[in-house]
């Protein structure tokens, strides 16, 4: 396929009817209806996936899945994909994007954050969003092992937030990324928590359910290390986060923890890695004003679409995703066959 033709093929994202609704977009993207389709389409891709453990400098072990593209038009480029909070390397949006990139000739590596996917047994301590170093180190190792060829980092939601932080810290950590793309990234976490509490209860319920499941696994795997009974009695995200911050992190309070992974204000000032943020103004979880307040940096581009919801960008009722084509359009010109 000619790269120019790929660029030309991309239509503007213009969802019709119900698909123009932010909640429909946000809920469809991770929902079971899409899941069946994504799993079916990804069957061969998953069959070719190679499981890998990435051990970072501090001994943390992160689980990932590598695919070498079978496409006749290989791009000789690697895309590292990061999922959102309580998502995984198998999440609909991540898997679907990985399959699309694979078909377009990109090698892919779907990296699970600690305690996500089926990786709860690999590390004793609990995941929290300020654990940047291990992700930074893992991405650096993957980057270095791919030689001189282009390496991209693409993250969704909280994975988008990690992407921005990795992009910011990579040069100081001794490696460079060819380009980073953050889709619907968390910018200021306390605003996200506010939005989850003030918005439709379905989002909070969704995350609480998945978080409870995850911590139940963690407790079962390390029963003598964790006593989370008190946490299980708390019903709200704020209360649960507060409890974990107090009992399982070194942060003095919830506020300092949430600010600990914020990329707002001047965090991205001096960004050297070529970075793109793609997000939607109607995202029910990430307030659009957070993006307007980002510093103006030459290496940072923002594409704020009017619609798309949170990590949605579903084009039609066949559940085709516009974001996948957009990512291919972004990355393709930076590669050569």
């Amino acid at each position: 396929m000619n790269p120019d033709s790929r660029v030309d093929e991309l239509r503007p994202f213009a969802p019709r009817g119900l698909l123009g609704n932010a909640h429909v977009q946000s809920l469809l993207t991770s929902g079971p209806w899409r899941r069946r389709r994504v799993q079916r389409q990804a069957a061969a891709y998953l069959g070719r996936s190679q499981r890998e453990l990435v051990e970072t400098g501090d001994g943390t072990r992160l689980l990932g899945f590598r695919n070498s593209s079978p496409s006749a038009e290989r791009r000789e480029a690697l895309v590292i994909l990061l999922h959102g909070w309580e998502g995984s390397s198998e999440s609909n949006y991540l898997l679907s994007t990985a399959v699309a990139l694979d078909s377009a000739g990109f090698d892919t590596f779907r990296l699970n954050m600690r305690d996500h996917g089926t990786s709860h047994h690999l590390n004793l301590e609990l995941f929290h969003s300020c654990r940047l170093d291990e992700v930074l180190d893992a991405v650096g190792r993957l980057r270095q092992s791919y030689g001189e060829r282009p390496v991209f980092l693409v993250g969704f939601s909280l994975g988008g937030n990690f992407t921005l932080r990795v992009a910011r810290q990579a040069p100081a950590h001794g490696f460079e990324l060819t380009r980073a793309v953050a889709v619907s990234p968390v910018i200021r976490p306390r605003h996200v928590l506010d939005a989850l509490e003030g918005g439709l209860s379905v989002y909070q319920t969704y995350f609480v359910r998945k978080w409870r499941r995850s911590l139940r696994i963690k407790q079962a795997l390390f029963p003598e290390h964790f006593d989370l009974d008190a946490w299980f009695r708390i019903k709200t995200l704020r209360g649960q986060t507060d409890w974990l911050v107090e009992h399982h992190t070194k942060f003095p309070n919830l506020h300092s923890y949430l600010e600990g992974y914020s990329v707002a204000d001047d965090y991205l000032a001096g960004l050297d890695t070529s970075t793109l943020i793609i997000t939607a103004a109607d995202d029910p979880i990430i307030p659009a004003r957070d993006f307007h307040e980002l510093p103006s940096e030459p290496a940072l581009a923002l594409d704020l679409l009017p619609r798309g919801g949170h990590c949605g960008f579903i084009e039609n009722w066949r559940m085709d995703s516009w974001i996948e084509q957009r990512l291919i359009k972004e990355l393709w010109p930076l590669t050569k066959p």
Binding site: T118, S119, H120, H121, I217, A220, P223, D227
Partner: peptide
């Protein structure tokens, strides 16, 4: 396991459950 985290039979039961749920690494 929450009631008696150090009881090996409880840990074995959890392993069997996780194995049946398709999580061999957790069971291990």
């Amino acid at each position: 396991l929450r009631i008696n985290p150090s009881l090996s039979t409880a840990q074995m039961s959890m392993a069997r459950v996780l194995l049946a749920q398709g999580h061999p690494a957790f069971a291990e």
